[in-house]
Amino acid sequence: MPAADLDSFSLLLVYSAMAVYTLAFIAYAVDVARRSAVRSVPAAARELVGAGGPTSATGPDPSAPLAPALPGRGARIGFTLTVLAWVLHLGGALLRGLAAGRVPWANMYEFALTGVAVIVGVFVLSRLWKDLNFLGVFMTGIAVVFLGTATVNYYVAPTPLPPALQTYWLVIHVFVATLATGLMGLGTGLSVLQLIKERRDNGFLRSLPTPVQLEDLAYRVGVIGFIFWTFTLIAGAIWAEHAWGRYWGWDTKEVWTFVIWVIYAGYIHARATRGWRGSRSAWLQIIGFTAIIFNFTIVNQFFTGLHAYSGL
């Protein structure tokens, strides 16, 4: 199949993935709304829900009309849709790679395509470890917004790699960067929820883990992200030494990679400091991830530097 056709199929899959992510987002949002509804029924009714839960699995239970038949059914639908969208999304990324004849992360559109796939992938696969469905609204929302933005603003037809990118370091350095971004994104989602939960604890928020539990999870995910980021930084330096003749030159992108690394180092120290643990450290993780997004969008497009390729 000609490369151009592969690329249009890739785009088709990406659009489909965006549509299904949107459906997943709606399912999660409905679930959130229902959870809020559950909390608003009187305590007696809540007792009933608890008792009626198992029976209502076989059919609607008229005794608990306000409560969802199965707590979290919306979340389960949301998760299934997310997995479906993710598979479409991966297919889109794969075809894009085939169309270009290389890894699909060599320009901003492709980096966003693969990066969001990794973010969602981390979320989907974390299911094997923990049920993080309460993050569904956040993760599918991010997926729709990021994919949409990237497709509208950054899309370019596949072009061959410029000589500077023709090296296995592209595979290593950039992919690890997307992994780090994905993990830090998940950690940031948890940190945001932690902060919200600390401030208010009503409606669906009551179905979430405690702020401390959220903080612990956010930290564990963020730390893995930090390790990958460290690796990104070092792999980038090795590559820079091969391509540009120095391992570190304070290029704008290098500066921002360093800034993000230092912010996360601050986050990890804050976690271990009395008076900084809790919401202050959560803010640091959020600031760190914001810096990553800033680095990808604003720094790439508006700052002059050596990390400029392929039009976008």
Binding site: D251, V255, V259, A272, W276, G305
Partner: peptide, 27 residues
């Protein structure tokens, strides 16, 4: 630890101007 965190954050903020203003070493 508190001072270390503040210094780390200062380091991050202090590095930013170098990406906004051209540097003799890189540009």
């Amino acid at each position: 630890m508190r001072t270390a965190i503040v210094l780390l954050l200062l380091l991050a903020v202090g590095a930013i101007p170098g990406s906004l203003v051209p540097q003799r070493s890189s540009d």
